[in-house]
Design a protein around this nucleic acid. Structure first.
Length: 154
DNA sequence: GCCAACGTTGGC
DNA sequence: GCCAACGTTGGC
């Protein structure tokens, strides 16, 4: 069992959008970063736990999700109409992959990024490292435990 | 294979 | 809106 943090711009795809998705499940499409792709393709397994993070204004961990389908080709990558189209990716030779994630929980009080920075035990968290832009990040079991506990207390 | 230029992300 | 950090591209 592994733990992850997945970022999304709420204007693009928010936790509310996930809740309103069919079966409260969505393909995590549009990732066009090799490091993030490799994590999804090689590391993410069904049942892994996901912290759902909103970037931008009011950046915060807003809830929990779960991996329900392991990596498969991101079909938006060969759709010329799609904003994440990549001419080098084809159905025969897909370059980009995605997983499906399912809604688990919405925190009654999101945990803001600037609060996370003050929490003991999260000093080493990838999210808090300066300049980190990775949209799919590994989270340690300890970090996950600290954050989910915080969410219950807030 | 190096590196400058450029584009994007994302916090502030 | 600014800008630091980082990834990608392309000339050499």
């Amino acid at each position: 069992m592994k733990y992850w943090l997945m970022k999304s711009e709420p204007d693009c795809f928010s936790l509310e959008d996930l809740i309103n998705s069919p079966d409260q499940t969505t393909p995590w499409d549009g990732v066009r970063n090799y490091q993030a792709r490799n994590l999804m393709r090689e590391e993410m397994k069904t049942g892994d736990k996901v912290l759902f993070y909103h970037s931008g204004k009011n950046a915060a961990v807003v809830g929990l999700a779960e991996v329900v389908r392991e990596a498969y080709p991101d079909f938006t990558s060969w759709d010329p109409e799609n904003s994440h189209f990549d001419s080098k990716s084809t159905p025969e030779s897909p370059r980009w992959f995605m997983v499906d994630v399912k809604f688990v929980k919405q925190f009654s009080n999101p945990i803001p990024l600037n609060y996370l920075k003050t929490v003991e035990g999260l000093e080493g968290m990838a999210l808090l490292r300066k300049g980190n832009r990775l949209s799919v990040q590994p989270v340690t079991e300890e970090e996950y435990a600290v954050i989910t506990k915080l969410a219950e207390e807030m």
